[in-house]
């Protein structure tokens, strides 16, 4: 019964926090409205998100966010240098396939989002069975190192978070 009424407790919690953040003041009225949204919206969207993902280690998620933010800053500078100072014919863009060990749909979504948000790489598509992801790299001489970097830096941490 509880499972039917609250299909995604974490989504409900997120919605409550996002609503309180949007109005930017915590009053009883706002809290009631926030809880109402948190309870009702997951029930309406349940059909599109049937399984409940397992979060193994939420604290690892904080570490993951910090690692990604740092990488975004570093990669921003690298890509800016490429755009500003590299002659066009020397930019070697490549498609790099990265085999996946992750199986959960939520984890793969987070990984694809991370790859896109770190400048220099954009995730394009998955293989039909979801076992590998196609990454476009703006400039690299060593696709194998890029692939290993994604696997060891992001995928390993996501495995710990989601399993």
């Amino acid at each position: 019964m509880i499972r039917y009424l609250i299909p995604h407790p974490l989504l409900s919690l997120t919605l409550v926090l996002v609503w309180l953040g949007l109005v930017n003041t915590v009053t009883v009225g706002n809290l009631v409205l926030a809880v109402l949204f948190g309870l009702v919206l997951p029930i309406f969207t349940k059909a599109y998100w049937p399984d409940r993902p397992k979060l193994g280690n939420p604290f690892k998620a904080i570490e993951y966010v910090l690692v990604v933010l740092w990488d975004i800053v570093v990669a921003n500078v690298e890509v800016a240098m490429i755009i500003l100072f590299k002659p066009e014919r020397e930019i070697r863009s490549q498609w790099v396939p990265v085999p996946l060990d992750l199986t959960s749909a939520e984890a793969i979504t987070v990984l694809a989002g991370t790859i896109t948000m770190t400048p220099g790489t954009v995730s394009a598509t998955l293989s039909a069975d979801g076992r590998s992801i196609l990454v476009h790299c703006l400039h690299t001489d060593d696709p194998a190192a890029l692939r290993d970097g994604i696997k060891s830096r992001y995928e390993r941490r996501l495995m710990e978070i989601f399993q």
């Binding site: 498609w95 085999p99 598509t125 998955l126 293989s127 039909a128 979801g130 076992r131 590998s132």
Partner: peptide, 21 residues
């Protein structure tokens, strides 16, 4: 494009497997 390194091709061209694993 490079090979997808799995039995199936990229999802833009290939259909997903009949039964989900």
């Amino acid at each position: 494009l490079p090979d997808s390194t799995s039995e199936y091709g990229w999802s833009v061209y290939d259909d997903p497997p009949e039964t989900i694993r």
